[in-house]
Design a protein around this nucleic acid. Structure first.
Lengths: 332, 332
DNA sequence: GTGAAAGCGCTAACAG
DNA sequence: CTGTTAGCGCTTTCAC
């Protein structure tokens, strides 16, 4: 029977069992250096017999570096970030690296705390969807962290690499499609932190010769409640709008709900395009036209980047695609 | 300008800067033992000035225990598990514990690998949705890991605690509701590993005096493709069924898609109840009647449990609730 | 109240 | 090819 307070099997135990020195065990097990076939066998056998697992703690402390990578997302419940995380996790797993996940709730303060605890854990690589303006990343850079941003680049990001979707082209394509359907009063539901998309929205409108109506650009915080309030408020204050571009799936969901609540029919009364393709977009009534983003790829690429080299700052831009379904119609 | 290869600030640096011994620094910073107000100040000041963060590596190695907790889920992309993870992450954050997340894809082999790497990282507490029959958990128990299972208990689980939803009552309520609507040919779309729910389904049917038709119990693997294949196959092979209970939101999604593809109308041609309430259930057409599960709470409770004491095995069962919307109708 | 010193498990020099 | 040894950063006796 197994007692609860058993000591962990250490490299020393293996060395004794195999009747060799600890260094030899280390060499054999880590594949470094050389060892005679005979000793190699003895060590392997002993290790297997004792069910030995080298302690990452000891190794990391000695080598002065931790393998693990940190992942900071605003909300793991949002399928976009869940898919992003999935990509990161997959890449990390094939590299054998553990991943520490933190949820920032898009709150810079919470983000700073999480960065702090990552540093404390000696995590030296982190992939993050930065909150706010990414103002909390100074300490991280100073601590020598290898950072790759995802979804949103950071302004004064000291040239930290980022993996982002092609917002400009995504927004432009959506707006042009809407304009082609005759729409002129197009609203944009944005989350805080989507400055790039808002800018792209203004640009797209401008190059189409449509005047920008600032009231039609509405911002929400990253919660379902805030999203709903924003969408509902928009529909009520501006019953003259004929189309909406939602900056995220949460905002799209809110828009569908709010429209339904106010008895606005899609696409008869109002057309809707949502950023990010999610499984339910097809199940919705009507099926939603979306700007799909390669969320999983973004995560995977970010992980690849952070595992290689963070020195040379690059920004990887991944393509978006307009997926036309049934939520847009001609201007009423 | 900051060079890249800077050494991490250690307790020794702080000791020197404060002109005290390292032991004193340790005592002050960890709140252990006593120190004179004067030294206390000096130490705190030095630590703040140097922006010192104690290394969890050193601490854990010395104390022979790691704070962190491991979290193993089948699929972080499934909103049920994402919400579960969210609960865990939230609880862990308020306890200041880092969380390492792994995706098992419901594959026992992958699960075993992940368990191994958690042990290697000296993680000593783990929350897991076990894959398969949970046959890979022997080594974990042997290694002295504190394990709490979530969603599914493990049969010979050595009395490891588990936090689960009340499957029996959830299934029974759903089946009774369907039966009350006149349905007799009720199918159950199950994921592998949902043996409890299948059993409950048989029981519920039995106590209602409805014969169990084994062909109406269909199993799928934990992927969207497999779910769709199962749902589609079921509808095609058994056009006589009048109601379906889907064991997960992935299976529910598949059922809606498959039904639509085969031109079966909900709820006219077939009634559908799905396990797990998700945001899109309301957006679906028709809105889906569901058995809601407190996914987030399950995660939170599991984290609380694993952070306290794992010794005394308990199984926490959380209630489910039938949320009636529009996907069920009287037998056609 | 405080400092010196002994390791925790591991790897990388350095001898042999 | 292999064993001995010196730490990595930290906490914790144990003297002072």
């Amino acid at each position: 029977m197994m007692v609860s307070g058993q000591r962990r099997t250490t490299i020393k135990d293996v060395a004794e069992a195999a009747e060799v020195g600890v260094a030899t065990v280390s060499r054999v097990l880590s594949g470094t250096g050389s060892a005679s076939p005979a000793t190699r066998e003895k060590v392997l056998a002993a290790a297997a017999r004792l069910d030995y697992r080298p302690s990452a703690l000891g190794r990391n402390l000695r080598r002065q570096r931790t393998g693990g990578i940190g992942l900071l997302v605003p909300d793991i419940t949002d399928t976009f970030y869940a898919r992003l995380a999935d990509g990161v996790l997959d890449c990390a797993r094939s590299a054998g690296e553990p991943v520490m996940v933190g949820v920032t709730a898009d709150d810079p303060e919470r983000e700073a705390e999480l960065i702090g605890s990552l540093i404390e854990e000696s995590v030296e690589r982190v992939i993050a969807v930065p909150s706010g303006d990414g103002e909390m990343w100074g300490p991280a850079f100073r601590a020598g962290l290898g950072v790759v941003f995802a979804e949103r680049p950071v302004q004064g990001g000291d040239g930290a690499p980022a993996v982002v979707a092609d917002d400009r082209s995504g927004v432009r394509t959506a707006v042009e499609y809407l304009a082609g359907l005759g729409h002129r009063r197009i609203a944009f539901l944005a989350r805080h932190g989507q400055a790039r998309r808002v800018r792209a929205f203004r640009e797209a409108l401008g190059s189409l010769g449509v005047a920008v109506d600032e009231e039609l650009i509405v911002h929400a915080r990253a919660t379902r409640d805030s999203a709903y309030a924003a969408a509902s408020g928009l529909f009520q204050h501006r019953p003259d709008l004929t189309a909406v571009l939602a900056g995220s799936n949460i905002l799209g969901e809110a828009a569908v709900l709010a429209a339904r609540e106010l008895d606005l029919r899609l696409p008869r009364d109002v057309s809707l395009i949502m950023f990010d393709d999610v499984p339910w977009a097809e199940l919705c009534s009507p099926p939603l036209t979306v700007v799909s983003q390669p969320a999983r790829d973004m995560g995977y690429r970010a992980a690849e980047l952070v595992l290689r080299e963070t020195r040379r700052a690059r920004t990887v831009t991944l393509p978006t695609e307009l997926v036309v379904r049934g939520s847009c119609g001609p201007r009423r």
